[in-house]
Amino acid sequence: MPIQLEIVTPERKIFSDEVDGVVIPGIEGEMGVLPQHAPLVTTLAPGELRYTKGNKEEELAIGQGFVEITATKVSVLTDMAMSDDEIDETAVQEALDRAEKSLNEKLGDEDYAATQAAIYKMMAQLNLKRKRKV
């Protein structure tokens, strides 16, 4: 029995289909979800989300947010979700360097937190991209 996976960002609905299993980057570490999982809610850490459908495994880099799991459905609400081919490695690397530089400058608490969050998201993108190359 498959499980319904739905990934939504504020900009658009990224993914909505039935899959065989999902691995989610939870705040407490990676978490594998199969059909008939116990109802669970957790926050996400920026990282990789993997899902399998048939023999194919797909990966997405996702940002912060949270996930609601029921027996038949996984709803992922996040502020970013990108697949491998959507990530522009050089652009992300440049943005990452800029962000890291600005962290050293004087920032307010909120700016600091926002920049830090952006850095985590970019790292997630880069990790996904680089893993594929090796």
Binding site: G26, I27, E28, M31, A38, P39, L40, V41, T42, T43, F66, E68, T70, A71, T72, K73
Partner: peptide, 17 residues
């Protein structure tokens, strides 16, 4: 809109989530 019969679990815990 289905709500599971049993309560949700929270990770790490409800208040943090």
């Amino acid at each position: 809109g289905e709500v599971p019969d049993t309560g949700y679990e929270f990770e790490p815990n409800a208040s943090a989530v």
